[in-house]
Write a protein that binds this DNA or RNA. Structure first.
Lengths: 242, 242
DNA sequence: CGGGTCATTGAGTCAGCTCAAGGCTCGTGG
DNA sequence: CCACGAGCCTTGAGCTGACTCAATGACCCG
């Protein structure tokens, strides 16, 4: 018999059984409270690459946890230009942008096949008034989002192209590490053009700098497969993104 | 007898009597709930120009509402460079950055003499579990902060120096308007070098572009006094900052 | 009146952009 | 099973917007 847990996109994993529980929404909750949270979470079928999880303008109903795969959030400016506002890896929460205006200001798109946990916000909000730890945890997630955006603002305002790319690599590295994966050897889920867009650069510049890092031995690079040979040297460039 | 209400930095104004109530934390609250909120707010003496409200690294105890004056928040990068992460005008909330790690990651500094309402977070949090509207309002404030940072990220990633400055002028204009002040005629509370820092430019570029806007008749400029002569033309530049 | 801070203006440089030309890879259909 | 096309990536050459460096001007405060 097939053990359904072996599929990373399984729709059946409960929160208390999810290997991401230690970095996702349930941190700090009692087992009993995790159970309550678990009951309001909706687990859909796996989402294919390049599908939308929500569109800008959609009514804000839910926030979403990435369970597997990877997601980018994008904002379309008035003049029709796309700006990527974040990359999200398993255990991270998306969709909070809709809270202020009650409709999403970003769109979220999967970068690869992903599993997504949908958490209806009205029920989360209601549950939060009864579980103070959950309210605190949700405040924390939003605050962390603010902190990581401020880091990006600093990067875009002050740092060179090399520093921006080093920061992105280190950010993905440390987030992989906190998910129990390798900090030095990983695959980039996003394209060069996504990286360029996110970091305020052109695709040519991104490509040139990857080549430069590779030739200098700082990293080993084969398409999207990255090995960080000298993470310390990368770190001496910029402040890592959160 | 002196009417204490006439002083914009008065320490005595209650929330239900504050002319900022319509744009500050209490929005959407019942009068009774405003009273409860009012009781946890600490109103200190006016803060002089260039004083710190909190320092990066301070234990996170409170969030703060700007009642009068203006504040900048700054982040010091590892290499000792200062990045301004936001400008805050009356009715706006600062200090949320400390929530995730329980200590502030930014410092907040007044740009001019200001009055600040301190709101102890533990009591706000506790009150939020009893007043769902307050919890919702606080989620909203954080979400709005996220949205406005994303706007800045887009600006820094995609827009030219002229567009960045136009966006900042329009942002201050619209925030003045929502406080019942003139949208077209106002004083900038921050220096050229603060503007440059915030927008990821140099002070020389900021100065040159102000001069250019002035010579083209787009704005009238006398030091920090700005008159927007053709707000529409400015708007055709970029997306305004939130 | 002198010194410090802030702002303006000019001249020259350069990091990253634009434009242009291929190369690689993978999926599709003959 | 291979040829072809589309998408993605790399590399080169030249341009330019914003930066750096430098000097001067305007204002404030003691």
């Amino acid at each position: 018999m097939l053990n359904i847990q072996t599929c990373p996109h399984s729709t059946e994993t409960r929160c208390d059984d999810c290997r991401l529980a230690g970095i996702c929404l349930p941190i700090g909750l009692q087992l009993e409270d995790i159970g309550k949270l678990d009951q309001i979470i909706q687990r859909g079928r796996p989402v294919q690459k390049k599908e939308y999880i929500y569109h800008a303008g959609d009514k804000f109903k839910s926030v979403y946890a990435v369970r597997s795969g990877a997601v980018k959030t994008i904002k379309i400016t008035e003049d029709g230009i796309e700006q990527i506002t974040g990359f999200y890896l398993p255990g991270e929460i998306i969709g909070i942008d809709g809270l202020a205006t009650n409709s999403h200001i970003n769109s979220a798109i999967t970068l690869e096949t992903s599993a997504i946990c949908e958490i209806p916000f009205s029920r989360l909000e209601e549950l939060s008034t009864r579980i103070p730890h959950l309210q605190r945890r949700f405040f924390q997630i939003m605050s962390k989002e603010i902190a990581s955006e401020q880091q990006l603002i600093t990067l875009l305002g002050k740092n060179s192209a090399e520093e921006r790319i080093a920061a992105l690599l280190l950010s993905i590295s440390s987030r992989n590490q906190s998910r129990g994966l390798s900090a030095k050897d990983f695959y980039l889920p996003m394209s060069r053009s996504d990286i360029a867009n996110f970091l305020g650069l052109t695709i040519e510049t991104v490509s040139r700098i990857f080549t430069r890092f590779h030739k200098s031995g700082l990293i080993t690079l084969d398409k999207k497969h990255i090995v960080l040979n000298h993470a310390d040297a990368l770190r001496s460039f910029p402040q890592p993104l959160a």
